[in-house]
Design a protein around this nucleic acid. Structure first.
Length: 385
DNA sequence: ATGGCTGCTTCTAGCAGA
């Protein structure tokens, strides 16, 4: 595991990587590696490590050995060539061979429950939001439709329940937030690259416990056709482009939020009535399919392939009572997380509460890492090559 | 098919939502 880096005197990039190995269920210091990477790889590693920065020291190590160390959450697995293990357990003549993107692991010492909830006005729904947080205790929450300017976010009430928060507000419309009660929130961005309209607060991203959480509120797009629909398509294209770079990073990522798309006919109570709507139009569903085809897992559908699942019910005509719903809130998992998906549900009862949002909270649980696991990846005997 | 509901703003009537 890469546990940190020490910085270079000359300009950007790291001078050496600090290493750890899992042994007897614990991570212990295994020395530094300062060779084997070129300038491009140093830059790439720098970009990957930056969002993982941590105050917490992940391994015990001699003070002199780690002078000027920048620690990260132990998430990235590197392949290292070396001649032997010294008596003090560090690697002799280590050389960096590359990153094992297939073994990039989040910090999952305990299970992690991650939720998304379009609150439809964070202040108007505050009693409902707090009641739900207290009852269901999600670890990380993506909120959408805050409908509040930056300074009107109810941070104190949320902090009183043990949640740290970052948010990107906007007057009247939109607004997104990420809450966590399990680890520091390291914000990585607060709008999509090349957002067609950067005045709209629709995307916020952070690293929490070594997992990148992208919280999003995709434009509604009605009426169709029209400028709002064009904006939806343009925004979706930018999301797809950014999602591709997230996958390329090899990091564990959850994209969660109100996508304003019913992916298939199984996700609408009456598909034939919605074919011309911006939430179900063929071109919008095609964009969703393109996103998924990059390698994302639609958590709820993958665990419940044949169930009727809705996350939204209109306020009109007793839609909730008639179960005339839509599935438009999604949690997408990058490949390294898909195998850890343990549960995925909608807290649909919340939609029946007083003064509630028209959406229901939707969540997943990722399984904890196996407690004791020896890793093959950090060992390779150079003599045999 | 239609009109039904809700939050927010500060021209409490008009908009956006889905």
């Amino acid at each position: 595991m890469i546990v940190g880096w020490t910085s270079s005197d000359k300009g950007r990039g790291s001078r050496s990587l600090l290493l750890g190995v899992h042994e007897d269920g614990k991570l212990r210091y295994a020395g530094k590696v300062g060779t084997g990477f070129n300038a491009d790889e140093i830059l790439r590693l720098g970009e990957l490590m930056q969002p993982l920065a941590s105050e917490e020291v992940p391994v015990k190590a001699p003070r002199a050995a780690v002078k000027g160390a920048h620690w990260i959450k132990p998430t990235l697995v590197a392949e290292i060539a070396y001649t032997e293990m010294t008596n003090d357990g560090t690697l002799r003549h280590p050389s960096y061979l590359g990153l094992r993107a297939d073994q990039v692991l989040p910090d999952l010492r305990s299970p992690m429950k991650i939720a998304t909830y379009n609150v439809n006005g964070v202040n108007g729904r505050l009693p409902v939001l707090l009641r739900w947080l207290e009852k269901e205790q999600p670890d990380v929450v993506c909120l959408q439709e805050l409908k509040a300017p930056q300074e009107k976010f109810p941070a104190t009430a949320i902090r009183d329940l043990g949640y740290d928060a970052i948010w990107h507000g906007q007057k009247s419309w939109n607004g997104v937030a990420i809450l966590s009660r399990v680890g520091e929130i390291h914000e990585t961005r607060r709008r999509l690259p090349d957002d067609p309209d950067p005045t709209q607060s629709r995307y916020i991203e952070a690293a929490v416990n070594g997992i990148i959480i992208g919280g999003l509120y995709l434009p509604n797009g009605n009426p169709r056709p029209g400028p709002k629909f064009d904006y939806k398509l343009a925004w979706f294209e930018k999301l797809i482009a950014h999602a591709a770079t997230l996958l390329e990073s090899g990091l564990p990522v959850v994209l969660a939020g109100d996508f304003n798309v019913m992916p298939t006919e199984a996700d609408v109570y009456k598909p034939e009535r919605w074919t011309k709507d911006a939430l179900f139009a063929p071109e919008v569903r095609a964009l969703y399919a393109r996103l998924i085809d990059q390698g994302w897992t639609d958590s709820l559908r993958s665990l419940h392939p044949d169930e009727t699942i809705y996350t939204f019910w209109d306020y009109f005509r007793d839609a909730y009572g008639r179960n005339a719903g839509l599935r438009i809130d999604h949690l997408l998992l990058s490949p390294s997380l898909a195998g850890r998906l343990e549960d995925a549900q909608v807290d649909r009862q919340v939609r029946g509460w007083e003064k509630t949002s028209d959406h229901a909270p939707t969540w997943i649980r990722l399984a904890a890492e196996m407690p004791v696991k020896k890793r093959r990846s950090s060992r390779r005997d150079k003599a045999h090559e």
